[in-house]
Design a protein around this nucleic acid. Structure first.
Lengths: 143, 143
DNA sequence: GATATTAAGTGGGAAAAAGTGGGATACCAT
DNA sequence: ATGGTATCCCACTTTTTCCCACTTAATATC
């Protein structure tokens, strides 16, 4: 299961270093697409369809579903890691996630989210304030 | 049941020595994540997994579930003790807990809290001054 | 209670792995 | 051709991992 935070960098050639821990699970070829809250979603090729369940399997007459499809599928790209574990990030994805040179990868069980480091830290500290009930359950022990 | 205070150290290689008393309960593999008042929370793996149930299999479109996942998964790390009972502490957790080189582990019944030694001692002596009315509030209204 | 014995904890060397940066060549579109 | 981008490769730095030696603490033994 994918979990934890690992940092990477984006160099002048738009190459993104991908943490080796995650590489062990995902392999050296996967899908990158736009995510929610200005993140990027990174998912293994064979997990791609499963992940979309419940979001794109609605009838095409449903506009919300059409829009979600366009967002998730239309922006997706398949990337390949180089020998040193880096992939090339298309400009439109870099823009979407407001990425600069420091990137944070978050293991989210079945996929990975990527955030600009600064934005993640801001978002996360906000999150901590509102997620207290969840954190409470964490320390309550077995239910 | 986890209780008591035991101290540890963090060396230059980010290795944290974990008290053998707690190791006997938790084993040599567990979850470390962010906690309240800038502490760290250490919980057993299966404890943590129970908490995740019902959130990691929700569709991507569920915002609440996204937030919970980010908090629970993004900040957590699964650690493994080495032969000498130390684990590697990720930089972001060290930062969160404002840890330097001395660390205090507190048994909290079902989980463990970790504090920077100096911060803990300051916090604790403040606590001692004000704890009586606080503890009283906890029991007020009951019976 | 002093000393032997085992366990726990600390620090660091050395090798391997991961990550970083950049040069040189190939490729494509204008 | 030319400028921009991608690809491949290599050199170098940093981090991680594994192992061992040593110190300190805890426990046992007489």
């Amino acid at each position: 299961m994918l979990l934890g935070r690992h940092d990477g960098k984006i160099d002048a050639k738009h190459r993104v270093s991908f943490p080796s821990v995650f590489r062990k699970t995902l392999g050296d070829s996967f899908i990158v697409t736009t995510g929610f809250e200005k993140s990027l979603i990174i998912v293994a090729l064979d997990n791609w369809k499963t992940l979309l369940e419940g979001t794109i399997d609605k009838p095409l007459t449903d506009e919300d579903s059409r829009q979600t499809q366009r967002f998730l599928l239309g922006n997706a790209t398949s990337v390949q890691l180089d020998k040193k574990g880096r992939f090339l990030l298309p400009a439109y994805l870099k823009t979407h996630a407001q990425l600069f040179d420091e990137i944070v990868f978050l293991g989210m069980a079945r996929f990975i989210e990527a955030w600009d480091k600064k934005r993640w830290e801001e978002y996360n500290s906000e999150l901590a304030k509102h997620i207290a009930p969840i954190a409470n359950r964490l320390t309550e022990g077995k239910t």
